[in-house]
């Protein structure tokens, strides 16, 4: 390739990547722009690209006037509880299959069972759960959501945690065991501190998934007492007359939390999404 044609390729590639980036970024830009518009701006004959007089009123309206602050609290409570439960259960399952001489068949069974849950469409699962939850009196109650989220984000927790635990050499614990430490002591003082980074990554990513979940919450809750934030955002959309700026503000709030969490845990996001196939080194 001559020098000039290489320069041309370079420019062409940059332009192409910039165009792609623009197409992907533009809808988000317009969302933020709309979320900063005043109510009066909504009645402009042609909607403007930028908010003529930026205001945070839509955010105040969503969180306080419409009472979505309560839904935000529900989402956090459900997300945190389900995340903590998922991690504890995942540890109880991953410890024996990674630190003890479990048979390869058992290990493969547990892991492939976990992955199989990823292939079940939530809508098929929610129909029987709807019946269970109503029968045992948990309909429109946060514990029902916590339970369902714990189970259905468990595969992610198991696969990620197993990846992290596999990277910690067995010998470190064994040295302590040979010196007379109990398994529990070795777990607490050696394995747990060593896997801290991994646990944090799993917590962040599982919480982000719990946070974003919609269908289970939509069907298993009915009032703001137990509704999660995404259900509230959906409610802003299907009303007869959409209040665009409030709807956009609700979506921005729904986006900001998982987005900032994922940026913190960015090195592990792809590991989580691909169940450990992609590993950051």
């Amino acid at each position: 390739m001559t020098h000039r044609s290489r320069g041309f390729t370079r420019v062409a590639t940059s332009v192409l990547l910039a165009v792609i980036a623009f197409i992907f970024a533009f809808p988000l830009f317009y969302l933020i722009s709309t979320s900063l518009k005043t109510k009066a701006d909504l009645f402009a004959p042609v909607p403007s690209l930028f908010p003529p007089a930026p205001t945070i009123d839509p955010y105040i309206s969503v969180l306080f006037t419409r009472g979505f602050g309560g839904l935000l609290v529900n989402s956090v409570v459900v997300g945190l509880s389900a995340t903590v439960l998922s991690i504890c259960v995942a540890f109880a399952i991953c410890y024996p299959i990674t630190r003890l001489p479990a048979s390869p068949r058992l290990r493969a069974f547990v892991l492939s069972w976990a992955l199989s849950l990823r292939f079940l469409p939530p809508v098929a699962v929610v129909i029987p759960y709807f019946a269970i939850v109503r029968t045992i009196g948990l309909y429109n109650q946060l514990p029902a959501l916590i339970l369902v989220y714990t189970i259905f984000n468990l595969p992610l927790a198991i696969w990620m945690l197993r990846g992290f635990l596999d990277e910690i050499p067995l010998e470190i614990e064994e040295a302590a065991l040979v010196d007379g430490a109990s398994r529990w002591y070795a777990f607490r003082t050696i394995l747990l501190p060593l896997s801290r980074t991994g646990i944090l990554a799993v917590v962040i990513i599982v919480f982000a998934f719990d946070w974003a979940e919609f269908l289970f919450a939509f069907i298993l809750t009915a009032t703001p007492q137990a509704m999660t934030f995404p259900v509230g955002v959906q409610g802003l959309v299907t009303q007869f007359e959409i209040i665009w700026n409030d709807m956009a503000a609700g979506a921005v709030i729904a986006i900001v939390i998982p987005l900032s969490l994922m940026i913190i845990a960015r090195r592990h996001v792809m590991t989580g999404l691909t169940f450990g196939v992609i590993r950051e080194k």
């Binding site: 992907f24 982000a208 946070w211 974003a212 919609f214 995404p230 955002v233 959906q234 979506a251 921005v252 729904a254 986006i255 998982p258 987005l259 994922m262 996001v269 999404l273």
Partner: peptide, 8 residues
């Protein structure tokens, strides 16, 4: 785009 909740 991947981490944005589907509802949003």
């Amino acid at each position: 785009p991947i981490v944005i909740p589907q509802i949003a």
